[in-house]
Design a protein around this nucleic acid. Structure first.
Length: 261
DNA sequence: ATGGCTAACATGGTTAGA
């Protein structure tokens, strides 16, 4: 018996003001049900709510000036909105959760970490520990949970274009990967890896030195699904096209499709 | 080769991203 189709996307837009036309063009063809944005870099007061409603989406935002900022777009009703990580004091707007069609959606913009051993790296590891605690509670409250966003961690060597160059560096270092593994161990599936074992499938390419042309990238944008939901997974696709458009984000959208039973 | 791009803030050059 066939269920209800439900598609969810993540996209680090690296400034929503600059990328609003890209978002509009992409949504016209993709028609996804839910979009989680990161690095909107816009305050809630300046957020383009009307423009996004005109694209056919309801929207909630958790933003700040200049840096960070997350938003959730959905074709249907958005409820039980929660900003940030509970019991974790953070001035940076990086997490936004809401329920759509009975699915708990948690949009995350994991800190970059700058360089291994730096203060920002230690903040990243503390932050990931707090996220793990949050997701433990979320799984107790909800069975259908999707955690998606810019994780700023390449899970495995096959998610890295040049393993020698990146080995031990931020985004690839062992403590970061262990923190991600600790989150997956709670009962989440990396939806891309459930549907593809391919190497060389990336979601981010540096702006410099023709990295996209050479496919010199990393897979750091992930859609994780709780075990209950992963049973309904149709597939996960990295949509490369928007990365090749004029004035692109350095990240490209990643879409997971479900057939909800 | 600690450069290379891009965006914000500002209006030149710094900070940050990944």
């Amino acid at each position: 018996m066939s269920g209800r189709s439900f598609s969810v996307a993540t996209w680090n837009v690296n400034s929503l003001k600059v990328r609003l036309p890209h978002l509009g063009q992409w949504l016209q063809s993709s028609h996804v049900d839910v979009v989680a944005l990161q690095e909107t870099k816009v305050t809630d007061a300046d957020f383009p709510f009307d423009e996004i409603r005109d694209l056919g989406y309801r929207v909630v935002a958790h933003g700040q000036r200049t840096y960070n900022g997350v938003a959730l777009l959905a074709r249907s009703e958005i409820s039980d909105v929660l900003c940030g990580i509970p019991d974790f004091s953070d001035e940076q707007a990086r997490v936004l959760a809401a329920t759509v069609e009975g699915v708990r959606i948690i949009d995350v913009y994991v800190p970059n970490g700058q360089s291994v051993g730096s203060d920002k790296y230690l903040y990243k590891l503390r932050w990931l520990d707090a996220l793990r605690t949050y997701l433990t509670a979320a799984l107790q409250e909800y069975s259908k949970v999707i955690v998606l966003g810019d994780f700023n961690i390449a899970p495995e060597d096959r998610d890295v274009h040049d393993v020698k160059a990146w080995e031990g560096q931020v985004l690839v270092s062992e403590p970061e990967r262990a923190a991600l593994a600790g989150i997956l161990d709670l009962g989440f599936i990396d939806t891309f890896r459930q549907s593809s074992q391919a190497a060389g499938a990336y979601s981010w390419w540096d702006y410099r030195q023709g990295a996209f042309r050479h496919n010199a990238g990393l897979r750091i944008d992930l859609v994780l699904a709780s075990e209950r939901l992963s049973k309904d997974l149709d597939g996960c696709l990295i949509e490369r096209e928007p990365r090749g458009w004029e004035r692109p984000s350095d990240h490209t959208p990643v879409v997971a499709s479900f057939n909800l039973k």
